[in-house]
Write a protein that binds this DNA or RNA. Structure first.
Length: 905
RNA sequence: GGGCGGAUAGCUCAGCGGUAGAGCGUCUCGUUUACACCGAGAGGGUCGGGGGUUCGAUCCCCUCUCCGCCCACCA
C-alpha cells in the first residue's frame, strides 16, 4: 500500500540518479531521425548560488525539455556557467582580503588569475549541483564554461574577424569609468540613481575688461525692463570639481543676452586659465543662466560641444577619481590627489570665500552609478575597444521584424526594437584580469596587430617587439556567442548542425539588452542564422508584497530550503502557475498549497490502489460502455489538449491551471466519487471497466503532469506499475506524450454525466441551505423530466442516492412542502418539510426566481430588438433564444413550486 | 522628457466584443475508510472615472486619474 503522503526527501535523489544514468538527459538516446529540440541555459555566474530567479527560469526550461522529450524529440538542454568578469574578480579579491592575503596588485596578474582558477575548481560548481536538486534534466556531458578552451578560441576568432571587418575598433573617447574597480563599463552597466545634490552657480570673470548689460527685471510678458552691467558670466554646475577642466563657456547662438560675448573669453577661477565663450545649440537659454561651462574631458555632452567648437579636452582626474595636475599644470598643487568629492567641497568653499559663488540651489537629480560597485561613475577620457553595434544591429532587427525569431510575450519585441534602433557603440574592453584577454598586440610606436594567437601577431609584426593588450573583454562578449560557441564553433560539429538554431531561449526581461540582443547580433552575423527561434521571457520573482527579494530586507525565499522542506515539485508547480505575470509574487503559503495538490494526486493513486484499479495493457479505452467512463475519457482528452496547447505556446501558467483543474476538480472531485458506488456495487462488468478506465486516466495524468512535477509522477509511475503487476518499458521521463484521438470524445456521455453532476450539485446546495442534517435521507422525487433525462437519472440512481445522501429516486409527484431543484431537462424535489423554515425557503426561492426573472427580461428585451435580430450573428441569436426558453421553463417550474410552498404556509 | 505595461471579488490574477471567472483568504456545516496537506455549501464585483464606436463594450477607440517598469537626462 502507498504511504499516506509522498516523501520527496528520500525519493528525489534516487530518481534523479535513475534519470541521469538512463541516458534520458542526452539527445543521443533519441533516434537519429527524431526532430531536434534545443535550449541553451542562460549561464549562471560561476560565483553564484541558486536563487529563486534561477529556480523560476530553470523550471520553465526543464518543463519544455521534458515535454519535448516525451513528444519523441531529440532534446538538448545545454548547461554551463559564465566566468562573470567583475563579479568573480570581486569575490576572489574579497576572499583574499578576508583571509589576510596579499592584494591582487601585489600578487601580480598571473598569480591572481591562477588563484581565481583554483577558487573556481573548488567552489565554482556549486550552482550546477544545485540545479540538479530542482530536477533539471540538462545534458551534463555537454556542460560548458565561458572561459574554457573551446569558448576562448571562439572569442578570439570572433574578435579578429570583427576587427578585420572594421566592426571592432579602438578609439579614444569618454567612457563610463568606475573608479572603484578602475575599469571602463558599458552603458548598460550604469544605473541612474536619484540623489540629493545642488546647482552651484559660479561667476566666471570676463577677460580683457569686457562688460555687458544683463537683464535683471522683467514685465508680465517676460520682457526685460531693467539691466545691470556685468563683468562676469554666470554658469551653474552639479559637479564643481570639474571646473578645473573647463575649456570653454557655451551660450546659445540665438541668445541675445550673450550675443556680444561670443568670441570673448573668461578667466577660469582657481586655475587662471583663459577660456573662450563659444556659441553652441547645446546651451539651453531656458536653463539656469543660459550659459554653460564646458568640460570636454569629463562630460559626455561637453565632449561633443568641445569637438564642435575646437576646445581642448583637459583631464583633471586619475583612475581613482582623484584630482591630478598631470595633464593640467595650472591646477594648484593643493588639489593634487584630492578625492573628487573632497575637491567639490574645497572648490565651493573657495568660491564662497573669493566671492564668485552666486547661488546654491538644492535639488535632487539622477546620477550614474556602477551597477556592481555602487560608486558614482566618472566620464573619463581613455583608449578602449568598441564594437560597431549599429551595423550588427540591423540584421538582428530584421530577424525579429520578419518573425525568424519571435518573443513570447510578443510585447517584448518593442523593447528589443527600441534599444537596437538607438544602439550606441559597445565598449568591450575592461581593465580587469579575469576574462578573455584581448587578442591585440602593440608595437613600440603604437602599431596594432590583432590575431588569434601571439605567433600570428608576431608573423604580422615582423621583428617588432610586441606587448599584448592588458585588458580583457566584457563578460557579455563571450556570452553573446553562447548558442554556437557551446556547440563547438568554429568547428563544424554535429551538434551545431543538429541543434543550431536553438528552439527556445528562456530568460528574464532584465537581460534582453545585455544578452538576448547581443546573441542575436553575433548569431546572425557569424552563423548566418538566428540563435533561437523563440524567446520566452519570464518575470521577476518578488515577495508576496511585490517587493524585490533581498538579503538586507530579509524577505528572500531560498529555493533550496523550499526543496528541503516541501520538495522540488511544489516549487516547480508554483513557478509554472505564477509565470504568466511580469512580477511574480511568491509566498511560502502558495507553495504549500501546491504541495497539497501533489498530495491530492498521491492520495488519488492510493485510492486507485485500494480499489484495485490496475493498469491493463490490453485495455482499450475506445471500448468503454458506461457513460461515466466515456465521459472521463473525453475529459482526459480535453485536458491533454489544453496542456499541450499551453506548453506549445509557452504558457506555463495555463498548462498548470489546466492540470490543477483536471486532476482536482474533475478526476478527484467527480470521477472518483462517481466511481465509488460502482466499486461498491455488484455489477462486475461495470466494476472491471471502471477500474481499467480509472487506471488508464491516472496513467495519462502522470504523463501530463510529469514535465511540471517530475519526481512525484515518476514515483507514482513506478508504484502504479508495481501494484498493477505490470512492467514499464521506460521511466516516465522517456514515456510518450499522450496523443489521444477525437473518437475518445463523447457528447452523449458528457450530457448524461452533466445531468448527474448537476443533480448532485444542486441537490447539495439545497440541502445545505435548508440545513438538512446529513443523517436525514429523504427520497428524491423526479417531478418533471424528458425521456432521456428519466433514463439517465434512473440509470444513475445509485450514484445520486449515495452522493446526495438521499433514499430512493422516485419518478412521481413530490409530497407537499418539498424543496424544488430545477435542472435543465428535469425538475427534482426533496421532501424535507420538517427541516424547512418556510420563510427562509420562500426567501431562497424568491431570490432564485428574481434572478431568473431578470434573465428572462433581459433576454426578451434583446430579442425584441429588431437591430439585434438583423445584425447579430445568427448563432448568437439562436443561442439567446435557447437561453430565453430555458430561463422561462425554469421560471415556470419554480413559480409552481413557490405556489405550493405558499399553500403550505 | 520619451516609451511600454497595468487598474476586474478582501488578496493575487485569468478572461479581452455576445449569460463576469479561478486560486487563496472569509463565513457555515462535516471526521461518509483516498486525502483535514480533506470534503460539502455560502457570501463577495456600478470589470479605475468620463466620452465615443457597435444591435451589444470588462473587452475596440479617445480622454482623464492613479500605479509600475524601461530608456534618456549631472548647466
Amino acid at each position: 500500500m502507498l504511504e499516506k503522503t509522498f516523501d520527496p526527501k528520500s525519493v528525489e535523489p534516487r530518481l534523479y540518479d535513475a534519470w541521469e544514468t538512463s541516458g534520458a538527459f542526452s539527445p543521443d538516446a533519441a533516434p537519429a531521425d527524431a526532430p531536434a529540440y534545443s535550449i541553451v541555459i542562460p549561464p549562471p555566474n560561476v560565483t553564484g548560488s541558486l536563487h529563486i530567479g534561477h529556480a523560476l527560469n530553470n523550471t520553465l526550461q526543464d518543463i519544455l525539455a521534458r515535454y519535448h522529450r516525451m513528444k519523441g524529440e531529440a532534446v538538448l538542454w545545454l548547461p554551463g556557467t559564465d566566468h562573470a568578469g567583475i563579479a568573480t574578480q570581486m569575490v576572489v579579491e574579497r576572499k583574499l582580503a578576508a583571509e589576510g592575503n596579499i592584494s591582487r596588485r601585489d600578487m601580480g596578474r598571473e598569480a591572481f588569475v591562477d588563484t581565481v582558477w583554483k577558487w573556481k575548481a573548488e567552489s565554482g560548481g556549486q550552482i550546477v549541483r544545485q540545479l540538479r536538486r530542482l530536477g533539471a534534466s540538462c545534458d551534463w556531458s555537454r556542460e560548458r564554461f565561458t572561459l574554457d578552451e573551446g569558448l576562448s578560441a571562439a572569442v578570439r576568432k570572433v574578435f579578429v574577424q570583427l576587427y578585420r571587418e572594421g566592426l571592432i575598433y579602438r578609439d579614444k573617447r569618454l567612457v563610463n569609468w568606475d573608479p572603484h574597480f578602475q575599469t571602463a563599463i558599458s552603458d548598460l552597466e550604469v544605473e541612474q540613481k536619484e540623489v540629493d545634490g545642488a546647482y552651484w552657480h559660479f561667476a566666471y570673470p570676463l577677460a580683457d575688461g569686457v562688460t555687458y548689460e544683463h537683464p535683471i527685471a522683467f514685465d508680465e510678458d517676460g520682457k526685460a525692463t531693467g539691466w545691470e552691467t556685468r563683468n562676469y558670466i554666470v554658469v551653474a554646475t552639479t559637479r564643481p570639481e570639474t571646473m578645473l577642466g573647463d575649456t570653454g563657456v557655451a551660450v546659445h547662438p540665438d541668445d541675445e543676452r550673450y550675443a556680444g560675448l561670443v568670441g570673448k573669453a573668461v578667466i577660469l577661477p582657481i586655475t587662471g586659465r583663459r577660456i573662450p565663450i563659444v556659441a553652441d545649440e547645446y546651451a539651453d537659454p531656458e536653463k539656469g543662466s543660459g550659459a554653460v561651462k564646458i568640460t570636454p574631458a569629463h562630460d559626455f555632452n561637453d565632449f561633443g560641444v568641445g569637438k564642435r567648437a575646437g576646445l581642448a579636452a583637459i583631464n583633471v582626474m586619475d583612475a581613482f577619481g582623484r584630482i591630478t595636475a598631470a595633464d593640467a599644470p595650472e591646477v594648484p598643487a593643493d588639489y593634487e590627489g584630492m578625492d573628487r568629492f573632497a575637491a567639490r567641497k574645497a572648490i565651493v568653499a573657495r568660491a564662497e570665500e573669493e566671492g564668485w559663488l552666486k547661488e546654491v540651489e538644492k535639488t535632487r537629480h539622477m546620477v550614474p552609478h556602477g551597477d556592481r560597485s555602487g560608486v558614482v561613475i566618472e566620464p573619463w577620457l581613455t583608449d578602449q575597444w568598441y564594437v560597431d553595434a549599429k551595423v550588427l544591429a540591423q540584421p538582428a532587427l530584421k530577424a525579429v521584424e520578419d518573425g525568424s525569431t519571435v518573443f513570447e510575450p510578443k510585447s517584448y519585441e518593442k523593447i528589443y526594437f527600441e534599444w537596437l534602433r538607438n544602439i550606441e557603440p559597445w565598449c568591450i574592453s575592461r581593465q580587469l584580469w579575469w576574462g578573455h584577454r584581448i587578442p591585440a598586440w602593440y608595437g613600440p610606436n603604437g602599431e596594432i596587430f590583432v590575431a588569434e594567437t601571439e605567433a600570428e601577431a608576431r608573423a604580422q609584426a615582423g621583428d617588432l617587439p610586441l606587448i599584448q593588450d592588458e585588458d580583457v573583454l566584457d563578460t557579455w562578449f563571450s556570452s553573446a556567442l553562447w548558442p554556437f560557441s557551446t556547440m563547438g564553433w568554429p568547428e563544424e560539429t554535429a551538434d551545431l548542425k543538429r541543434f543550431y538554431p536553438t528552439s527556445d531561449l528562456v530568460t528574464g526581461f532584465d537581460i534582453i539588452f545585455f544578452w538576448v540582443a547581443r546573441m542575436m547580433m553575433m548569431g546572425v552575423h557569424f552563423m548566418g542564422e538566428v540563435p533561437f527561434r523563440r524567446v520566452v521571457i519570464n518575470g521577476l520573482v518578488r515577495d508576496e508584497k511585490g517587493q524585490k527579494m533581498s538579503k538586507s530586507k530579509g524577505n528572500v525565499i531560498d529555493p533550496l530550503e523550499v526543496v528541503d522542506e516541501l520538495g522540488a515539485d511544489p516549487l516547480r508547480f508554483t513557478m509554472a502557475i505564477l509565470s504568466g505575470t511580469r512580477d511574480i509574487k511568491l509566498s511560502k503559503q502558495r507553495i504549500e498549497g501546491y504541495r497539497n495538490f501533489g498530495t491530492k494526486l498521491w492520495n488519488a493513486a492510493r485510492f486507485c490502489q485500494m480499489n484495485e484499479c490496475r493498469l491493463d495493457p490490453a485495455f482499450d479505452p475506445a471500448g468503454a460502455k458506461l457513460a461515466l467512463n466515456r465521459w472521463i475519457r473525453g475529459e482526459t482528452v480535453r485536458a491533454a489538449r489544453e496542456v499541450s496547447a499551453a506548453l506549445d505556446a509557452g504558457r506555463f501558467d495555463e498548462a498548470a491551471n489546466a492540470l490543477y483543474r483536471f486532476i482536482w476538480n474533475v478526476f478527484c472531485d467527480w470521477h472518483l466519487e462517481l466511481a465509488k458506488p460502482v466499486f461498491q456495487g455488484a455489477d462486475e462488468a461495470a466494476k472491471a471497466e471502471t477500474r481499467a478506465m480509472t487506471a488508464w486516466v491516472l496513467d495519462q495524468t502522470l504523463k501530463l503532469l510529469h514535465p511540471v512535477m517530475p519526481f512525484l509522477t515518476e514515483e507514482l509511475w513506478a508504484q502504479t506499475a508495481a501494484f498493477s503487476g505490470v512492467t514499464r518499458e521506460t521511466l516516465l521521463i522517456s514515456a510518450p506524450w499522450p496523443q489521444l484521438p477525437d473518437s475518445y470524445l463523447d457528447a452523449e456521455a458528457d450530457a448524461d454525466m452533466g445531468l448527474v453532476i448537476a443533480a448532485v450539485s444542486e441537490g447539495r446546495s439545497v440541502r445545505s441551505e435548508l440545513g438538512v442534517p446529513l443523517s436525514a435521507k429523504p427520497d428524491l422525487y423526479v417531478t418533471e423530466t424528458s425521456d432521456r433525462a428519466r433514463e439517465v437519472l434512473a440509470a444513475n440512481a445509485a450514484v445520486i442516492s449515495q452522493m446526495l445522501r438521499v433514499g430512493a429516486v422516485r419518478f412521481e409527484a413530490a409530497p407537499q412542502g418539498s424543496a424544488p431543484i430545477v435542472l435543465t431537462g428535469a425538475a427534482l424535489a426533496l421532501p424535507v418539510a420538517e427541516f424547512i423554515d418556510v420563510a427562509a425557503e420562500s426567501a431562497r426561492l424568491m431570490k432564485e426566481l428574481a434572478a431568473l426573472q431578470d434573465t428572462v427580461e433581459k433576454t426578451r428585451k434583446k430579442l425584441d430588438n429588431a437591430d439585434f435580430i438583423a445584425r447579430a450573428k445568427p448563432e448568437v441569436v439562436e443561442e439567446t433564444r435557447g437561453r430565453l426558453a430555458e430561463a422561462e421553463a425554469a421560471h415556470a417550474k419554480l413559480s409552481a413550486a413557490v405556489q405550493r410552498l405558499e399553500g403550505l404556509a
